[in-house]
Design a protein around this nucleic acid. Structure first.
Lengths: 235, 235
DNA sequence: TACTATCGGTAACGGATGTTACCGAATAAA
DNA sequence: TTTATTCGGTAACATCCGTTACCGATAGTA
């Protein structure tokens, strides 16, 4: 199967390259493409990773599985994002989590050796790779921030404001279902609903389905600013 | 001030190099060393980062500051660890958190350009750098795991077992004070003490000061395994 | 020694939130 | 259409846990 160059352009690793350049690269590059159906395993916890994956189509869920079989979703990956890049260059290159397809999807794999070869050939790609790692690191740190933001209401508002910023609109379309959102916020779905109701009642938001309208960003910002952080240190 | 080569050996960036090699490197390398007193700022939130820091002595605290002035500690860095490496190669290279000295400490700085030069000269260092980033990423992911482990008791046990593993002993010496530990677990100090008391009462641990003895790892493992994870998905 | 500050354990209270259960609506399958 | 299934809102209850207050121990300082 032949990957679409346009898709790869959205991948950080190839950012800045023209379609033609990518086409040329694909000619000379060693890679493989695999397709997966819903719920199929892409990486299993405990595998040793010797290649990086780039999502060409579909969505992938990364989850940590507990011995009992239950699991916590760590991340959702979309087209253009990479998988396995954090483990590839570690000494102990064992995959710490499970990656499954949330629907039909295809993934392009590049081996470690081949990657290294590409880096020496094309130092731009190296920079992109490091950029990508950095980006992820910052993202994950933001998630920690969110999780540490205190009580649920605060975490929700924190998240909503962040989304509003990203989508530059007061009307947000949630990128996931309530259940998934609850997982993301590390809470239970009914608790989330309860708080949603509360926020609606005090007139800060309105919602229907996956659309949420922020009616009072001012107040919400104030709420976040108002101190009641867990074990916060005063200066 | 001249950095101690032996200290740099403990830094991932220089791992595998002999003292002599590091001495030689220091001769040719562009760097600067700064000293800080307790509570002094090393990086301020919002600064643009154009250099990496390596801690030569002392400890550094990274915290996210809320607009009110209160803050949450994100990480503690010790001798040999690096600071700023996640932001250095990002497009938007703005420092997202504040770094302060928890006590007297000295830090070696290397500029971005100089780092890039070193990478081309010494591809080993490049690999080390990527390794370092990966390591951090995995570490931070583990922290998310811990934070998502559910109620406080579970988070504590999770942490204790992890420490016991790392220190390969049933008697752990805590790397920080109760207050710091509470912050790490994202909880309040009295809540921590309460749970400590509970765990002592049921005979799972004993503790005095920073030493904690795990008396029943079996049961603790079971407890973690026993499912009650927040919004866990059953397979 | 006495004074002060910091740390850590404890207890009581109330608010936050996980749990369970139930229900209607939307969707898919039959 | 009818029947399951999934999703999401709601409510009641019990538990978790953040807050506050108090106290003793320790350590540094005058």
């Amino acid at each position: 199967m032949k990957p679409d160059p346009a898709v790869l352009q959205s991948c950080l690793l190839f950012r800045g390259k023209s379609v033609d350049e990518i086409e040329a690269l694909l000619q000379k590059m060693l890679y493989s493409v695999s397709s997966y159906q819903k719920n199929m395993l892409i990486f299993a916890e405990g595998d040793t990773a010797d290649r990086i994956g780039i999502i060409l189509s579909g969505r992938v869920e990364v989850q940590k599985t507990h011995p009992t079989g239950s699991s916590v979703t760590i991340a959702h990956l979309n087209v253009g994002q990479t998988i396995g890049e954090a483990v590839l260059f570690r000494r102990e290159n064992i995959v710490p989590a499970t990656a499954t397809a949330t629907g039909p999807c295809s993934i392009l794999f590049i081996g470690k050796q081949e990657l290294l070869r590409l880096f020496t050939t094309d130092t731009d790609m190296l920079t992109r790779f490091i950029e990508n790692l950095s980006e992820r690191l910052v993202l994950v740190n933001r998630k920690i921030e969110m999780l540490s933001a205190g009580p649920l209401r605060r975490r929700m508002i924190y998240f909503l404001l962040e989304q509003a910023m990203q989508q530059s609109s007061d009307v947000i379309s949630l990128p996931f279902s309530r259940k998934e959102w609850a997982e993301h916020l590390n809470t239970a779905r009914p608790s989330l609903s309860r708080e949603m109701g509360y926020l609606r009642d005090i007139g800060w938001i309105e919602f229907k389905g996956s659309r949420i309208a922020l009616l009072n960003r001012e107040a919400m910002n104030d709420y976040i600013r108002t101190d009641s952080t867990i074990s916060g240190k005063e200066k």
